[in-house]
């Protein structure tokens, strides 16, 4: 049976592969979350994190833009109170708040005919509705990653747009190439979602990730 890694484990896997992931803290208590938030700097996001917790937004397991200690304390207590037995091991994940008006989704999937494929889509968490997603068979060589960015129908959104700078294409391309390399090297990976990848200023920042692994959890 395939299983999913927790958000934190997923991000650690991406980080180990060379993708920039902003610092975050995995803690067990509200008090530790407050301490972590003070270390990272406000505002922060607080999420309930565990292997059996996917699709956190839909289940209201994310608290965004917490401005101060009191807000973190309240959010931490609330999230811990929502835990259910079937969630298994859970922790609190404290992340620095990332804001940007543009979101994308990047990912990896195994196609039954063509094998590992890298995906890029506009809209981040709204990607399924927007439907502007493009694929390339991994590994991405030469200009494949740049071409993937160019293949988006509304890719102009990633250029200079309403006061926002153009996205750093080289950084985005590197993320896509790394996903492709993971697809080729790690045959145990069934799929990866980086969703959303928020464009903050010009930098694409990994805000949430979900890695699906073949076989039973070790």
């Amino acid at each position: 049976m395939p299983h999913t890694l927790s958000e934190h484990e997923s991000k650690e896997l991406l980080r180990a592969a060379g993708i920039d992931v902003p610092p975050e803290h995995l803690v067990q208590t509200t008090a530790a979350a407050v301490h972590a938030a003070e270390t990272l700097g406000f505002p922060v996001a607080l999420k309930l994190c565990g292997r059996r917790i996917a699709h956190k937004t839909e289940h209201h397991l994310v608290r965004l833009g917490l401005p101060d200690v009191a807000a973190v304390r309240r959010a931490g207590d609330e999230l811990l109170a929502t835990r259910r037995a079937e969630d298994g091991d859970t922790s609190l994940l404290v992340c620095r708040m990332v804001s940007g008006r543009r979101e994308v989704i990047a990912g990896l999937v195994r196609d039954p005919v063509f094998g590992a494929c890298v995906m890029l889509g506009l809209g981040g968490v709204f990607a399924e509705v927007v439907g502007d997603v493009v694929f390339a068979v991994a590994p991405l060589a030469g200009g494949d990653a740049e071409e993937l960015i160019d293949a988006l129908e509304y890719g102009t959104l990633l250029g200079p747009f309403r006061g926002e700078p153009a996205v750093d294409r080289a950084k985005l391309a590197r993320i896509l190439e790394t996903l492709g390399r993971l697809g080729a090297e790690r045959t145990d990976i069934r799929s990866i979602d980086i969703n959303p990848l928020i464009v903050a200023g010009d930098a694409p920042i990994v805000v949430d990730a979900l890695v699906e692994i073949e076989g039973n959890p070790s």
């Binding site: 395939p2 999913t4 996917a54 989704i105 990912g107 990896l108 999937v109 195994r110 196609d111 039954p112 005919v113 063509f114 494929c117 995906m119 889509g121 990607a127 399924e128 997603v133 493009v134 694929f135 390339a136 068979v137 494949d144 071409e147 993937l148 293949a151 069934r190 799929s191 990866i192 979602d193 969703n195 979900l210 699906e212």
Partner: peptide, 24 residues
């Protein structure tokens, strides 16, 4: 649609993957 619990999997239609193959 690909069997995967990921968004990427849900978005990976045969048509989209093949469009990528043609582009590459």
């Amino acid at each position: 649609k690909r069997a995967a619990s990921s968004h990427t999997g849900a978005l990976a239609s045969d048509a989209r993957v093949f469009a990528g193959v043609c582009r590459q």
